[in-house]
Design a protein around this nucleic acid. Sequence first.
DNA 1: GTAAAATGTTAACCGTAGATTACATTTGAT
DNA 2: ATCAAATGTAATCTACGGTTAACATTTTAC
Lengths: 129, 129
Amino acid sequence: MTARSFSPAVEDYLEAILTLEGENRSVRSIDLSRHLGVSRAAVSKAMTSLNAKGLIEHAHYSSISLTDEGRRHAAKILHSHRMLKRFLIEILGVDASVAESDACHLEHSISDETRQKWLAYIQSNLKSG
Amino acid sequence: MTARSFSPAVEDYLEAILTLEGENRSVRSIDLSRHLGVSRAAVSKAMTSLNAKGLIEHAHYSSISLTDEGRRHAAKILHSHRMLKRFLIEILGVDASVAESDACHLEHSISDETRQKWLAYIQSNLKSG
DNA sequence: GTAAAATGTTAACCGTAGATTACATTTGAT
DNA sequence: ATCAAATGTAATCTACGGTTAACATTTTAC
């Protein structure tokens, strides 16, 4: 159940971990640091916090993996991001780099209901058209 | 010029001031406190900060008004809010209360380019339709 | 005009999330 | 295996944005 929600910062870390998982064998702190443009220390502190929230598994000096709950939430954010970016580019005609930047912020701001209806709308508006 | 951007919290205060202006003769700290659901102390601190940023005028123990820059930014946020809410309700079919809540967050997350294209899209999709 | 109530401010504190610096640990080259 | 480089952590600091409690000021009722 745990239907609580997380801060944009927490969601950014989760999304980054999921994204990096697809590129690397194991996700290290330094990867997140580079990907998100924050210090290694900031990542270290954040990982302690995400671990305490049950969103990742992370032993001292070892690599980082998502728990089931962390993965579910990360996937939701990543899907929202991709959906919104596609909407902005393909339906509104927004420039790709602006769309990417806007999607990074918008992804944290929509409810489940809205996300579902938005996705359906995009799909029906791109299939036809 | 001052093309910088402001935090969601700052934008919420600006939007609230503009909204309350339309209802009251003068906007007081207590009005913002009630409207936004934060303490009087939080409003007081925020007003000091908005004042320092040149977004409002506010002498000690007196009522609050927007500067030109504050008003411009407040109007932008309020327009974004209304536009997004309308999009969510009338185009996506999202429930009104969910749309209101989502719009409150989304309004802080879109660039000028996106806002303009979105507005045009909504208008052409509701005029016809 | 004065006293009580309402409102505004300040001070002290909390939590989040970042930075820098210094130190700890792990990794990799030899 | 050892040492240097890379990476991870801890300590300390900053800024933001909220809280409560105490105090200041203004407003309102009488």
